[in-house]
Design a protein around this nucleic acid. Structure first.
Lengths: 105, 105
DNA sequence: TGCTTCTACAACCATATAGTTATATACTGT
DNA sequence: ACAGTATATAACTATATGGTTGTAGAAGCA
């Protein structure tokens, strides 16, 4: 585990460590979207969405396709959701553990 | 995807978004460790390690066990490494894609 | 009862970055 | 060429947090 690898891996986790970006990725789950569509769907500011998309693109989570005035963003691959599902699975497990503790009292 | 869930999931990704914490988790892969052992292995400051461990414990990535003067930390479960392996898989795929681009020139 | 060691915590500083505002850039249509 | 629209970018603020230093608290031992 060299420092470079550690830095790379952690930067990818950090890319998913912001609610706004998870929301954007979740929107893209339904298919590619233009920036303005994402702005509308997420209620975030245009510049804000644009910045998040730059980062998600730089970290290879989304791909881009320009068509005239519009830029279409899409999920680079499905592995993002494997990650999210794993993380959600952890949360469910925690919540169940809490339930068991409550029930045991 | 409610804001609460988004906040929870993103906070867990954020927990893995710091090189120092990945390093600590990596050390724990070999088995449980005391704080001072982790300090020695990672070359991080004691207070720093302690703070990271608090966060990793609060986010259920590690468990703790106190024995006399020492506190032993251990991985809460193996799913952390599923996450890391997935993320590393992404990096490998990216790197291979870059290689292909270079080779194609 | 001290004295030592291990861990946690508080207070602080420095830095990274999320979000906003304003503007620049790129493209389309008239 | 000009006007309008979509996206990106620059500049800025506010905030969160990683790391450090110093200290407090807990447990063992003389």
């Amino acid at each position: 585990m060299t420092p470079d690898v550690l830095a790379l891996v952690s930067s990818r986790f950090r890319a998913l460590g912001v609610p706004a970006r998870l929301e954007i990725l979740n929107c893209l789950r339904a298919g590619e979207r233009t920036v303005s569509e994402l702005v509308e769907e997420t209620m975030l500011g245009q510049a804000n969405v644009s910045k998040h998309l730059q980062l998600l693109h730089a970290t290879n989570f989304v791909s881009r396709r320009k068509d005239g005035l519009f830029v279409y963003y899409a999920l680079a691959d499905e592995s993002v959701f494997l990650l999210c599902d794993l993380m959600c699975g952890r949360l469910v497990a925690e919540s169940e553990a809490r339930q068991r503790l409550l029930a045991a009292r």
